[in-house]
């Protein structure tokens, strides 16, 4: 939509529009049903944004507090004594001193040295962190962690998918940062899937409890807790969240090359297979990408899996080594070679 018409709509909404502009707006809205939808949407948004505000409830109480204050302080407050300035200067020096000290500590602190483990496509691994927690890192994933954890918290950064078995330490919460989302636990096992490319994060708790915070503009905005066999899915683009009950066992089964797909799109399944088996899967017809499939594989041979997927999505595939091409099975779109 052009900015001009949007301007006219807001002016219309505020009833400040001129007669001439109103005619222009009316003609624009009438000229196309798409314009009418846009007009309606803008009005709805302007209306809804007003509902953002809750009515104050304590106006009278707050006025009484002010009135009480006025009764006590009829006279304006006197200027501060000069020694206050002196005290402030002394305080400032003290703060600078503390700051330098803090910086020295920071440099000496081993918690600021990091290790980074990256797993290429077609592989997976498990290893033990400095605190004896166990991490299973899936194909195409990266974990960054300090060589020595801080005393009050254990922070790691994850890109991709990992299953954690956290050693219990209540005073030292374990925090997994994945972009805007961080997951906190003290002694829990759970799976975090957060491939940066996918704009989609899924956290599934197997045992214990995990607290999740979703940040917007670098500030915490949404929070929630997960219990065993609960999954939280976050669309990092829109912030939409869905919490569901799920079998956590199945979610973490990728560790033994067992894969369960529940209502997953062919595109999602294809990227999982690409990572797990180091493949290059192309979907020739874009319509194939969004077909939803529910299926499971248990160390199934690759060709068997591809066959199953082709049958379920009504498509066909060709394979040469690691390059696989899915195409629509209907005669109109099949390519002749």
């Amino acid at each position: 939509m052009e900015e001009l018409y949007y301007q006219l709509i807001t002016e219309y909404y505020h009833q400040t529009i001129t007669d001439r502009d109103l005619t222009i707006l009316q003609e624009w809205v009438a000229s196309d049903s798409l314009h009418e939808t846009e007009f309606r949407e803008v009005i709805l948004i302007l209306d809804a944004a007003k509902l953002y505000y809750r009515d104050p409830k304590n106006q009278d109480n707050n006025w009484n507090r002010i009135a009480a204050h006025i009764r006590q302080h009829k006279q304006p407050v006197k200027r501060k004594f000069p020694f206050v300035r002196l005290a402030m200067a002394a305080l400032l020096l003290l703060i600078i001193g503390l700051g330098i000290n803090h910086y020295r500590n920071y440099r000496a602190n081993p918690a600021n040295h990091f290790a980074e483990i990256t797993i290429p496509y077609g592989q997976q691994t498990s290893f033990i962190l400095p605190d004896s927690s166990i991490v299973y890192l899936n194909a195409g994933s990266k974990l960054k962690y300090p060589i020595h954890f801080a005393k009050n918290k254990r922070i790691v950064q994850l890109e991709g998918e990992a299953f954690f078995e956290i050693r219990h330490a209540a005073a030292q919460p374990f925090i997994i940062q994945t972009g805007k989302v961080s997951t906190t636990a003290s002694g829990t096992s759970f799976n975090v899937k957060a491939f940066p490319k996918e704009n989609h994060i899924a956290i599934t708790v197997k045992t214990g409890k995990a607290d999740i915070v979703f940040k917007e503009n670098n500030r915490p905005a949404i929070t929630g807790s997960l219990l065993p066999n609960q999954q939280l899915q976050i669309d990092t683009k829109t912030g939409k969240t869905i919490k569901t009950g799920i079998n956590a066992e199945e979610i973490s089964d990728w560790r033994s090359y067992r894969m369960v797909f529940c209502n997953a799109t062919l595109k999602e399944i294809a990227s999982t297979l690409e990572r797990t088996y180091k493949l290059d899967i192309e979907l020739e017809d874009p319509a194939l990408a969004n077909i939803k499939v529910t299926t499971s594989f248990n160390k199934t041979p690759l060709d068997q899996m591809l066959k199953t997927l082709a049958t379920l999505t009504g498509s066909r595939y060709t394979r040469s080594n690691n390059i696989i091409l899915f195409f629509s099975a209907s005669p109109n779109t099949v390519k002749t070679e």
Binding site: K57, H73, P76, V77
Partner: peptide
Amino acid sequence: ITTSEVLIADLFIKLWDNRKQ
């Protein structure tokens, strides 16, 4: 909103205290 109401009341107290300056 409750936090904001307290802050706004503080604002008016400050306005009163500093009215001369």
